[in-house]
Amino acid sequence: MNVPPKVTPSKLVNSLKGVSSRRMRQEFPDLVKHHRRAQRLRSDSYFAGSVGGAPPSVVRRYIEQQNRPA
């Protein structure tokens, strides 16, 4: 993804979350019923990090090997 340097990570994430939420609501209308109390599908939090130029295959393998919550 190429993003202009003037776009802050928080604005980028908010935009991506908003677009994906609208698409999910359109494609899966039943989601709204399950999340009606909060009126939103996602939390306000996010994580942004860098990988120092590691190849995508190395990053993917690292993520896949992480422990999942029980």
Rank of each mutant, 00 (worst) to 15 (best):
I63K: 12
L12K: 07
V59G: 07
N2L: 09
R25E: 09
I63H: 01
A48C: 15
P55R: 07
A70E: 13
R42H: 11
G52N: 15
S57R: 09
N67Q: 13
G52D: 06
Q39E: 08
V59R: 12
E27H: 06
Q26D: 13
R23T: 10
V51R: 08
S15Q: 04
A54N: 08
A70K: 02
S15P: 02
T8W: 02
R68P: 05
S21K: 01
R68H: 08
N67G: 10
P4L: 13
H35F: 03
R22V: 07
E27M: 11
H35C: 06
L12A: 11
H35W: 10
R23C: 07
S43T: 08
R36C: 06
L41Q: 06
V19N: 02
E27Y: 11
L16F: 10
Y62L: 12
S57Y: 09
M24E: 03
H35G: 00
P5E: 04
R37W: 05
Y46M: 02
S57C: 15
K17Y: 15
A48Q: 09
G18R: 03
S43F: 06
E64G: 09
N2E: 04
V19S: 09
G49E: 02
R61V: 14
G49K: 01
L41Y: 03
S20Q: 14
S21H: 01
R36V: 03
P69S: 13
N2P: 02
A54R: 02
K11L: 01
A54V: 11
K33N: 13
L12T: 00
F47S: 14
K6Y: 10
S45V: 13
Y46H: 06
V32H: 06
P9N: 10
P29D: 14
K17E: 02
R68Y: 13
P69I: 11
S15R: 09
P55V: 08
G52Q: 08
V59T: 12
Q66N: 13
R22D: 11
F28Q: 11
S43Q: 09
E64A: 15
H35V: 02
G18D: 07
A38H: 08
A54G: 01
R22S: 09
M24W: 02
R37S: 05
V3T: 13
R60F: 12
P9T: 08
Q39P: 06
P9D: 10
Y46E: 05
Q26Y: 03
Q26C: 07
P9G: 14
N2W: 11
A70F: 10
M24V: 02
S50R: 05
V7H: 00
L41G: 00
L41D: 03
